[in-house]
Amino acid sequence: MVSVTTLACLTIATLLVAVLPVVLFWKLKPRFGFERREVILGIAVFALFSMVIERGLHGFVLSNATTAAWLANPAAFVAYAALAAGVCEEVGRYLAMKWLVSRHPQTLERRGTALGYGIGHGGAEAWLAGVLVQAQWIVYAVLANRNELDEHFASVPLDALMRLHLILGSLSPQYAALFLVERVAAFVFQIGFSVLMWQMLRERFRYTLPFMIAAHALIGVPAALFQARLIPLVAADAVYLVFGLIVVRALVRYFRSGGGRGAPTTSI
Rank of each mutant, 00 (worst) to 15 (best):
L171C: 06
L20Q: 01
A154I: 12
A263Q: 12
G260P: 09
D150H: 11
K98P: 02
A141H: 04
F226S: 09
L230G: 05
A129G: 01
K98C: 11
V156D: 06
N73E: 12
V156Y: 13
F49R: 04
V23F: 14
L71P: 02
R103G: 10
W70T: 13
P222V: 08
A124Q: 06
V184K: 00
A8T: 14
A44M: 14
W99I: 01
L164E: 05
V78N: 03
Y117L: 10
V184Q: 07
A114T: 06
L168H: 07
T14A: 07
M200R: 15
T11Y: 07
P173L: 05
R93G: 01
T208Q: 07
N64S: 15
V39G: 00
P30S: 11
G192P: 04
R103F: 00
R111T: 06
L20V: 13
Q134L: 09
L218C: 14
F187H: 02
A176P: 02
V91F: 12
L48Y: 00
R110D: 04
S50E: 12
V133Q: 10
A129E: 07
R202L: 14
M97Y: 07
L245M: 14
A114P: 06
G120K: 07
A81G: 07
Y117I: 02
A176W: 01
M197V: 04
H104T: 13
A236V: 05
V91D: 07
Y240Q: 09
V131K: 02
L143E: 11
T67Q: 05
G244K: 01
P74D: 10
L71N: 07
V45N: 07
V195Y: 05
F187N: 02
F187C: 01
A215I: 13
W99F: 10
A82D: 03
R249C: 09
Q190T: 02
A185T: 04
V139P: 00
M97P: 03
L225Q: 08
E203N: 13
F243P: 00
I119E: 05
Y175D: 02
V142Q: 12
F25T: 12
C88M: 10
V252Y: 09
L62F: 15
H152P: 00
F226V: 11
